[in-house]
Design a protein around this nucleic acid. Sequence first.
RNA 1: GCGCUCUUAGCUCAGUUGGUUAGAGCGUUCGCUUCACACGCGAAAGGUCGCAGGUUCGAAUCCUGCAGAGCGCACCA
Length: 723
Amino acid sequence: MDEKFKKPYDPAGTEARIYAAWETSGYFNPDNLPGDRTEPFSVVLPPPNVTGVLHLGHAYEDSLQDAVVRFERMRGKKTLWIPGTDSAAIATQSRVEKNLQKEEGKSRHDIGRDELVRRVREFAKASESTILSQVRRMGASLDWSRYAYTLDERRERAVATAFKRMYDAGLIYRGSRIVNWDPKGQTTISDDEIVYEERQDTLYYLKYGPFTIATARPETKFGDKWVVVHPDDERYAAFKDGQQIELEWIEGPITATVIKDAVIDREFGTGAMTITPAHDATDFEIAERHGLPKEQVIDEYGKLLPIAGEFAGMKIADARPKIVEKLRAKGLVAKEEPYTHNVATAERTGAIIEPQVKLQWFVDVNHPFTLEHSEIAGVASGAEITLKQLMRAAVEHGAVAMPQEGFRSAYFHWIDNLRDWCISRQIWFGHRIPVWYRGEEIAVGEAPSGEHWEQDPDVLDTWFSSALWTFSTLGWPEETADLETYHPTSFMSPAYEILPLWVARMILMAGFHLGQAPFKTVMIHGLVRDSKGRKFSKSLGNGIDPLEMIDKYGADALRMGLLVGSAIGHDIRFDEQKVKGYKHFANKLWNIARFVLENTNKESWSDKQRLQSEDFPYKNEMDRVAREVSEHLEGYRTYMAAEQLYHYVWHEFADKIIEESKGILNGPDETAKTDRRWLLAYLLSTCLKLLHPFMPFVTEEIYQSLPTKDSDYLMVAPWPVVE
RNA sequence: GCGCUCUUAGCUCAGUUGGUUAGAGCGUUCGCUUCACACGCGAAAGGUCGCAGGUUCGAAUCCUGCAGAGCGCACCA
């Protein structure tokens, strides 16, 4: 027996060495796997932010996916797990900008676009190694030879190609539309990047000629020349659609027009409102329907424009009380009441969103196109379809299996409410929009030859490139062997937070560009929270560094602590005591190995002896566990599999079988001894294999000390096959 | 307003398609330096599975209603 077993298991002294050995073996790359493997199994890692550090959410995600990947690899599949990082454009740029301001007192405009982009790239490159080495410490069996970055050259090509093809199909268009403008970040953001916050404000009832209108935003009202009521509202039956009224308004007398539109909620306020098409989505739609102009009142910095008369140049917050004062003085305020409502804020910057009309690029989700080639169940090749319908069909007919009912409904609910996706962002770091202008001319896809072409200054929403991830990582748009073999990918396990942001858009992109699902099964997981159920956040100071947990208890223990007893899809409360418990379990396994190795000989491991009859129940029981664990893993019930193994190893194998073996091994019956030794060897080797997906390090370390092995590494040892 | 999830032992949670005395970890109590392991061993206490109905031979599990907790989406003039 190896001397190392005389001391307790030491994860810190083991894990780095084992991981390095795995990397050297080349087995993370499916091209090097032993045996004749035909059936592929592929997963892409949800790419962490390139400048980020590993948090417990990643740790959980890595544990979950690695368990599945290792299981499939041992089962003999051609298994590929692709690592990558995401540029997280807005987050990364704003971090560099913050540093620039702090260290040099400069803004991005001081150093210019090229210099800023250069610095952001540099910063991203410098921090890349941190997150990658941290993912390694979790034991993740990723094929590093296929590492991808959302902003590298190949992905750049994929993005430009995707953009062009969608543009040519009429699915990407440029238009003046009302968008979510973040005055602090100075960029548009998508609907999914908005967080609603409850605020206490005042609802002002203003006299508007014969009407009284309610508003929370008097500062937008300067240009309001239309008053809208519901067509069936009897209170306003006397007014006709299109009727003109002279009235006194903020800056003097104006001519207002009555409009009737069914979008009005008769119950709200007085049932009459004036509209500000340039700064409100609903108002914009009304204006579109009735062909009204949309005059800008507030600029990109949240300041009032000249239309606001003496208030021009003021910030909204400063202007509002002064405007109300003036309205009061003119006797135009009928009533004021406290008002609780939700205010849209930007997820990143926290700024209040100012809807603005802007010329932006959009993905049209309702434009019909012909899907020439389709492998998606329920969608025929050559079908006329919209992106929205395609996204729905892929899940509805099972091309993407979404076994969790609740998330399926959430997905459909999201699809049904989906509007066109604004994909342009007014920042500098990211995939620049592949469009060039020269006067009225436009070139899409590649830079055109000839002079005086100007590239669009905006960059693409980071989720545009992320949405291509399952196939851009496999070499698309080239028709690579990888793409042929590994797409659609087998499995995806993202957090529910990014179901719409990412999952749905991957389905959109893979559907349009390949006529395939991006993945066959998606298992959505929950969030890791602190012991009180709160989200981890900097402001709460409740962060837990997974690396610290690994240092203290080992990666195996952390993995088990995150996986056991946490049903996929539900939030997890992180419990350090639980992790500690699994450190003990790793040590228990270590001591089981010590006992078995001390009490067996080489023959016990190589000879396939016939078992004594009373030993058969033990073998059968082990085989039953192996079968159930396999079934659980096949159904992605990792939490069940891990728990069952824990229970079996500790309370059956150790507590009962080993205890009983002591008597037999010290007894007189030589045949019984031989059979028992064989049993112990059989049980240990089977348990190591079954536990390997969950606790790869300790199991591999023990496996390396076995007298005979089925393969050079446990990582590629054949999974116990049981009828 | 629409929708989703949860409510099981002191705490944190499992319990896949309904089937024998409802499980785990931690914690608690008692006893053990027993020759694999004190990162351990042995034993014990602890639950009318949120409440009320229903379906069924049988319900923690399915259906309906109610209560509480959390979350998402929409509206928000």
